[in-house]
Design a binder for these strands. Structure first.
Lengths: 351, 351
DNA sequence: CTGAAAGCGCTTACAG
DNA sequence: CTGAAAGCGCTTACAG
């Protein structure tokens, strides 16, 4: 005979609908109706259910209801970023979290550290948990392995970088235009030798920014001097060393365009050590805290990480709500913030 | 007759064990054994299952297996922090993620923004999803509502702040000692009027840091001048204004102790605007990026956020592994990093 | 070593 | 408006 009394193992310590039904003297179907807010329940019975639920400390088991439910929703989405501890990733996550929360959805997260193998592992781990959808900054360049999953109905939105070999929604910054704006700003202040310091060129955003750098020089009919270009600066040390090497050239650059957050900070540090921070101009891609407080303040091309994360989540939910229009890439504009470092002029001009 | 063919609705597009079993011509129990790596399966049958699974793109449904499984594990934990976008919270999350990942566990996160109501909502949302455990930075001062859940077997570890009215494991920084170290450092450099700028005093860590400030002054037999103490500086504007007011006093402080990250940064900004950053000494609680590059560099009491997050996750998993020893609070030491701002001496000493 | 039956906690589809 | 039966995808407990 089913009783409110449960077995001895740990899991049964948590009351179920059956326990609530037994205490209220009703069927579990009626309890289910009350828990789910179905309006066609006798108010008196509803009260009995609510009292019993409160008394037992009953909480619905979402994972069980999801299993049987026709929409199959877990009210959970997955979010994969480069590194949860990095300010840009953290801002993306927080923005997506807020959109999700407004719909009662929670976010599972994972850091990929630019490792395609990890991307696949974590995607599988998320899918095994039957997340309703995925927001991700891809680490690899090939997401075709997700095609079957997409067919199976899992919604996915890419953010910061477009997917490779897969048609899916994406929300990205206007990287190329941002880089063009940065370089043209330096050109407008009289610079003709502008160094490029960038992250791994295999990262799509890095490639797009480098492309913008090239285009701006070409448009100004200036030659691209390969000695002034340094890629693959993934560590702080590598970036600082690259700055030192560039400035030790017979014809050193009078300005630098740094294509990413950490590279920009490393360059600041190197210029200060060389005591050239009031002399060599610099514009960085990506804003960072305290950029305004340094002397000179660091001019940057700011990305709107909040908007990227927010829009990506909104697109995901609109897909979950049934939007079946063609997938597309949305571009979020960047913004030049002049703070001093980008407005330094070369000696030749100042003289 | 059960066939590999499925119905038309979205969820059935994803193959189940039943589909794999049908294709392999075996029972679903055998498929289950292979999927779970049970060794007592005929190698030939195991191969048949694996082939069928690969062909269908089968992925196990973790949420279904969890429902029936005797350990009831979801391989998912919940982590609630102050704000995922804040560097300290982000570092906690990343550290916990790494520990969890090494055990095949994923992390659901949520930001509380110091709101106790949100704390309760998100805790419920996590429990409804049957997370194996919880790591949290509590927003409210009373966690007694979790007692029943703790009884029911949910493991929980508090980080950065101890729980209120609940016996549970906690991992915290040595806030009081850190504050004492900061103030004694300033005293050792000749300061006698040291201002205190802090966040809401209702936050336990803020209270502990203020306590350390008071103790250090008392130990040095110096009076505590209430004019030099400002609490509740939760916004940047409030913090900057407080600095201005303190420095406008007839007898202004010659040094400041700022009890938190954002307050420290706001104070830097205010001192720079007043052109007193080379004159008024400062030690901040909590390190932050670029603190070393400012001029002067900002001396801080650094917390080890990585260690806090890592240890909290490790304690949680040791509990999940069956450790039933008495709950306890672990304290992670802080470290003074002198960078210049804390070593400025008051005029009277320099003269 | 393999499989048919029962059940995890819930919802669906259907009678009353 | 209420409830008994069946089933979501899987594992347990038990036969063979």
């Amino acid at each position: 005979m089913p009783q409110g009394e449960s077995g001895a193992d740990a899991r049964s310590a948590r009351p179920t609908m059956k326990d609530v039904a037994a205490l209220a003297g009703l069927s579990i179907k009626t309890v289910s109706r009350v828990v789910n807010g179905v309006s066609t329940v006798d108010p008196e019975l509803a009260t009995r259910v609510q009292d019993a639920a409160r008394k037992l400390g009953y909480r619905p088991n979402l994972t069980a209801s999801n299993l049987r439910r026709s929409d199959g929703r877990t009210l959970t989405i997955g979010m994969l970023v480069e590194d949860a501890a990095n300010p840009f990733s953290a801002a993306l996550m927080r923005a997506a979290e807020d959109i999700a929360r407004s719909r009662g959805v929670l976010v599972l997260f994972g850091s990929l550290d630019e490792d395609p193998a990890r991307e696949r592992e974590l995607v599988e781990a998320l899918l095994d948990r039957r997340v309703d959808g995925l927001v991700m900054v891809p680490a690899g360049r090939d997401q075709s392995y997700l095609a079957a999953e997409q067919q199976a109905g899992t919604r996915m939105v890419f953010v910061d970088r477009e997917p490779g070999l897969l048609g899916a929604d994406a929300v990205v910054s206007d990287n190329r235009q941002g880089a063009i704006t940065a370089v043209e700003h330096l050109l407008a202040h009289g610079h003709r030798r502008i160094g490029y310091l960038g992250d791994q060129i295999t990262i799509p955003t890095a490639a797009q920014r480098f492309d913008g750098y090239q285009y701006a020089l070409e448009y100004a009919r200036l030659p691209l001097d390969p000695d002034l270009v340094r890629h693959d600066l993934h560590s702080t040390e590598a970036a600082e060393e690259a700055v030192e090497q560039l400035l030790a050239l017979p014809e050193p650059p009078t300005a630098l365009f740094t294509s990413q957050n950490l590279v920009t900070i490393a360059a600041c540090r190197a210029l200060r050590r060389l005591r050239k921070h009031q002399e060599v101009a610099m514009v960085g891609f990506d804003d960072f805290p305290l950029a305004d407080i340094l002397e000179p303040g660091i001019s940057v091309i700011a990305q709107d990480a909040d908007a990227l994360g927010r829009i990506a989540a909104q697109v995901l939910f609109s897909r979950l709500d049934g939007d079946t229009s063609a997938t597309r890439t949305m571009t979020v504009p960047t913004r030049l913030i002049p703070r001093g470092s980008g407005e330094l002029t070369p000696r030749s001009v100042r003289a």
